[in-house]
Design a protein around this nucleic acid. Sequence first.
DNA 1: GCCAACGTTGGC
DNA 2: GCCAACGTTGGC
Length: 137
Amino acid sequence: MAYWLVKSEPDAFSWDQQVKNKVEPWTGVRNHTAKQNLQKMRLGDQAFFYHSNSGKEIVGIVEIVREAYHDPSSDEGSPWVAVDVKAVKPLPNPVTLATMKVTAALEGMALLKYSRLSVGPVTDTEWKLINKMAKDA
DNA sequence: GCCAACGTTGGC
DNA sequence: GCCAACGTTGGC
């Protein structure tokens, strides 16, 4: 199974709302690289939920409960896709962007390399390390 | 609020 | 098909 990271501006859609709604369609991705990542997601894959802009930290974990389908928030016939994600659990301690940046083992992360990419892959190693950091912090 | 990075658009 | 101009995102 694969791991991912999805970004949301908490002003637009926050982790709290994700938890409250439980399952939520992840729509509005308008970038082809991000779209390709959405299409690679499979049922049961997990993703970090990251708050961009205000917060700038990973706050929780979601699971993919529906694979890519036409994004209902985009025009009919447009290529954009959405997936449905379900809140799994919050991180005991959010891991901030600042912390990840100074962690040598994470310097190759898609999140850090392509700061504007809203849906990116996370490697097994990165996934485990960040979970550990969230626990120990 | 500024600016860097990057995607997209449009003139040629 | 190239590239400059412009818009958007997101960190600071």
